[in-house]
Design a protein around this nucleic acid. Sequence first.
DNA 1: AGATACATGTAACATGTTACATGATTTA
DNA 2: TAAATCATGTAACATGTTACATGTATCT
Lengths: 180, 180
Amino acid sequence: MSRVECRLDGMSLRHALLGLLSERPASGYDLLKLFETSLATAWPATQSQIYTELTKLAGTGLITVAAEGPRGRKEYALTDEGLAELRHWLIETKPQRNTRSDILLRVFFLGVLTPEQAHGYLAELIELSDQGYQSLRRLEESVDWDDGGLSVYGRIALEYGLRFNAMRREWAEWAAGQIT
Amino acid sequence: MSRVECRLDGMSLRHALLGLLSERPASGYDLLKLFETSLATAWPATQSQIYTELTKLAGTGLITVAAEGPRGRKEYALTDEGLAELRHWLIETKPQRNTRSDILLRVFFLGVLTPEQAHGYLAELIELSDQGYQSLRRLEESVDWDDGGLSVYGRIALEYGLRFNAMRREWAEWAAGQIT
DNA sequence: AGATACATGTAACATGTTACATGATTTA
DNA sequence: TAAATCATGTAACATGTTACATGTATCT
């Protein structure tokens, strides 16, 4: 009775918002900041998208306006239904979204460039990976890992980023060696 | 004079098509098959998208209908302008598209599940990574690497996939150990 | 008083997905 | 001759980006 209809996959933005609200109530503005910091690498979202989706979520009862503050601030809180939907998404639906990579796509076509230009591209990737790695290291140091719920799994997600950037750097170095 | 206006980034589908056509002429149907095989992991595209984009590209002169075959087949070929645009994209524009990962996003919110359920999710990821790895190994064996232009960089892209899946597997195993 | 940060909302456009719709040629 | 494959196109909808538009509270 409680699950009204079959929902399609996707709609990850919706679940990202539910997930962030599962920790504590927050305004659209707060959520925007959280997207910019913690979720930026996993699921970037714009201000426009966030506010629009929050209105929809409140309309379907997955979240509610729990409090109103100064400057028109609306603080949203997760409802029981919202938490159920979040759990449903995590447990029942298969993570299989197609990952699109601008960076990898270009690699297929480096043959139309000179070997020097191809090396240039790979050097860019090495730098990009280094920057990503360093930036995550800085984040690691600045975050209070004794904080609430997101910290355990936030640390795990950060480790993913570190390993990913290290892998990409090593791969790009190897690839540069393959090009004569 | 030749570059008419400032183009925005993005439009990777367009450049993926130009890139594939830089090797040899092909029909929309051929290109669809190429997307399903070689580009599937880097930049998936649907039949609908491909045919629509080909029509647009032919309209702007980046490709032309070089030949027509049986069943209404239209074989497209890259023009000089198209090749210039492809090179421009590869050399001048920075690869910085936001990578969205459904899989990583869920990790942030595993705290709303029981440790057992979280372990279940990580086990799924390990299996997914293994399958991805094996499937790329099979592809590696089935492809004729002495073929044309795409093979050198196609092999490099494939190596990326192998390393990525290996990295993700190891990370998920480590992550499982972090959850008490 | 002016700058910055807080705070929300919408409109236009670009991109991507699913489903529908049609038909020709080859192969078993 | 029936099924599979080749071959293209469009319509409706979902999602994501950029720009515009507005106003309040705090800090220096």
